[in-house]
């Protein structure tokens, strides 16, 4: 093909590449905008025309983790002198921390929601991947009557609309006291991710030649030993990719969290939007909460980039 590229075609190609870059910039503008708002002074967040050049500051993140009130009047200079640097930032913005009787700064709900998200996502990921790997091995290596039907059944549980499952689950959880508990959400997310984990891990395990295990069996390993010592180490990449996908799904999940939790075990996705209606909206704080929440997902997406196609097609297409 290269031999027949004319000058006109090269120009055409160059124009297309330029178009791609312009489109990518337009496409990424929303992400740039939310990230930049997270570092803006409040007065610049909602200006017309939008402020593009500004001095980034971390005040929104300080505000994100604390409870504050708007100040009336000037700051007492003595108080300002004694304040720590982070308190000064808030005082500069015309707000002060709400403190308890001992003078400790009260923290906002964000941190506990963030922590809940981590606990729930990590635990459910661990369970889903562990069970999924075993089941995938079972389906990959052994014959089972009606195995395609079973695999379809497993996948179909993933496709159930969350609201449909949530109604009876809520009633059942209410009966056994699992509403608004970590365990409750962990169970739901494990069930939700399990099917995905089975399908994806089956793809990875199918790729490992059975010869390794057979050789191990000949050498006197039991099947169990062969699985743990030969197969599991070879699936490390697959396990890592599956785990990251499961983590992201659990991390992002909104509907179950909205319906099954309200405070104690609430995760970040239902909490962050709920900040919108309460009082005067400070978009820089919402943006900083969003930024912090999206950051791990962005990092993981980069780590996963080679496996994305595989992940989104449940392991069916491997490239």
């Amino acid at each position: 093909m290269a031999a027949v590229t004319s000058k006109g075609q090269r120009l055409w190609n160059r124009m297309l590449v330029a178009t791609v870059f312009v489109l990518v910039i337009v496409f990424l503008a929303p992400l740039y905008w939310i990230s930049s708002t997270a570092f803006k002074p409040r007065s610049l967040a909602t200006t017309v025309p939008p402020t593009v050049v500004f001095e980034p500051e971390i005040t929104p993140f300080i505000k994100l983790f604390t409870r504050r009130v708007q100040m009336r009047g000037e700051v007492d200079p003595e108080v300002y002198e004694e304040a720590e640097w982070y308190e000064k930032r808030v005082l500069d913005a015309g707000e002060r921390f709400i403190k308890d009787a001992d003078g400790n700064i009260e923290s906002s709900g964000y941190w506990s929601r963030f922590l809940n998200s981590i606990i729930i996502a990590v635990t459910s990921t661990f369970l889903a991947v562990a069970m999924g790997t075993l089941t995938a091995y079972g389906f990959s290596r052994f014959r089972m009557p009606g195995e395609n039907d079973w695999l379809f059944f497993i996948l179909s549980t993933r496709m159930l609309p969350p609201v449909v499952v949530a109604i009876p689950m809520f009633l059942m959880y209410r009966a056994v006291g699992l509403v608004d508990t970590h365990v409750g959400l962990i169970i739901l997310y494990t069930a939700f991710n399990l099917s995905f984990s089975v399908w994806l891990m089956k793809g990875f395990i199918d790729e490992i030649p059975t010869e390794y295990e057979e050789a191990a069996l000949v050498d006197g390993y039991t099947r169990m030993e062969a699985f743990f010592k030969i197969v599991v180490p070879q699936t490390a990449t697959g396990v890592a990719a599956t785990a990251v996908f499961c983590f992201i799904t659990a991390w992002n999940e909104y509907a179950f969290a909205l319906m099954m939790t309200n405070s104690k075990a609430q995760t970040a996705p239902p909490y962050i939007p709920s900040q919108l209606g309460s009082g005067i909206t400070d978009w820089t704080v919402i943006a900083s909460g969003t930024f912090l929440f999206l950051l791990p997902v962005a990092v993981f997406t980069f780590l996963l980039r080679k496996h994305l196609l595989r992940g989104v097609t449940f392991g069916a297409i491997r490239k």
């Binding site: 791609v20 990518v24 992400l31």
Partner: peptide, 23 residues
């Protein structure tokens, strides 16, 4: 470029909806 383009689909629908409100 491809990885950057794939970022949005990995994000939480709820949070994406929230910041599109800002936009």
């Amino acid at each position: 470029v491809t990885t950057l383009l794939l970022l949005p689909m990995m994000m939480s629908m709820a949070v994406v909806g929230l910041f599109w409100k800002l936009l």
